[in-house]
């Protein structure tokens, strides 16, 4: 704003308001502006968090308003951490998390590397590849249940075509050995484009002159890839891993739609189990403790990871 414009604005301010504002310090005015946001943050984020921590030490059930609430100390935490079923859910979550990230990083980076090459139809391919991540997880889950259908599913027929295994002889969602992989495949299909886009941004941020200098130094393509491409894309790749890691740790909708946590409990991820405890069994105190444990786990792991990411960026 120019000096004259500021003068005009000052003149336009009614004298009584101007007098009042003139009496306030800059700090007070700043507080007045941020107060609504802080209030909302406290009401929507901080208070529920503190309330959840409190509930986690009680036997409170939201569906039993008439029942006395007792302070149970660390009993909920102890019960959760010694429950074999919950460790099985954690293992299922870890399996899902690990393999989705491995596949998404490998395929996502490969696709980004290929798309980064100049070729005809480059933009069309990029658009087609990113389509799955535009879809709703509920829709994706629903139509993959059809693709996995042993009698009519295209996935089973594709496997039959490629391997000769009869299509109706295996059930991706119905057998305990295949179902954990079935959910990994669908999540990889849906979210690899996201990793690809981030890697593509990383690849395109590498200036051409670095490769030209390497060419002058007669560095092989292989050496250029390992000493230029990978180190320079690594911060982007790590960021993609962070995003996907946090997302998949709390994965719910896609897997519920695909398997509902079954068969048995082999695909019952921690978040699905938490929802059942909180809103189907109504064990509010217990599930609050469960939520706190998950929160601390993901927050702790993410913090360590972010420090590592910062170190990589500094290099």
């Amino acid at each position: 704003m120019t000096h004259s414009a500021m003068d005009a604005a000052a003149r336009a301010t009614p004298p009584n308001i101007a007098r009042r504002i003139r009496g306030l310090s800059d700090r007070t005015i700043a507080w007045l502006f941020v107060a609504p946001t802080i209030f909302l943050l406290l009401a929507i984020n901080i208070f529920p968090l503190i309330w959840t921590v409190y509930l986690s030490f009680t036997n409170y059930r939201a569906n039993r308003p008439n029942k006395a609430v007792e302070w149970v100390g660390f009993e909920n935490y102890q019960n959760i951490l010694t429950d074999d079923g919950i460790w099985a859910n954690m293992q299922a979550t870890a399996h899902f998390l690990f393999w989705t990230i491995v596949f998404q990083v490998l395929i996502g980076f490969t696709l980004a590397w290929l798309i980064n090459k100049k070729f005809k139809g480059n933009d069309l391919w990029t658009t087609l590849i990113v389509l799955p991540m535009m879809l709703s997880p509920a829709v994706v889950g629903n139509f993959w249940t059809f693709l996995y259908q042993p009698q009519i599913g295209l996935f089973n027929y594709a496997v039959e075509f490629l391997t000769g295994t009869p299509a109706s002889s295996f059930e991706m969602l119905g057998t305990t050995t295949l179902a954990p992989w079935a959910i990994v495949i669908v999540d990889t299909w849906m979210w690899t484009p996201f990793v690809m886009l981030i890697c593509l941004a990383g690849l395109r941020s590498i200036p051409d002159y670095i490769y030209e200098a390497a060419e002058v130094d007669r560095a092989s393509k292989w050496r250029q890839f390992w000493t230029i491409t990978i180190p320079m894309v690594l911060p982007f790749l790590m960021l993609a891993v962070l995003f996907r890691g946090i997302e998949n740790f709390k994965m719910f909708d896609l897997v519920v739609q695909l398997t509902g946590g079954g068969p048995g409990s082999v695909t019952e991820l921690a978040s699905i189990n938490l929802k059942r405890e909180a809103f189907e069994k109504w064990r509010t105190g217990y599930s609050s403790a469960y939520a706190i444990i998950l929160f601390v786990t993901v927050f702790g792991l993410a913090s360590i990871y972010v420090k590592a990411l910062n170190k990589v960026k500094e290099r």
């Binding site: 082999v266 189907e280 064990r283």
Partner: peptide
Amino acid sequence: AELLLAMQERMHNYVVA
């Protein structure tokens, strides 16, 4: 609900899984 969910889990684990 808790009684039902416990049975659902036990039965599905045995019969289907």
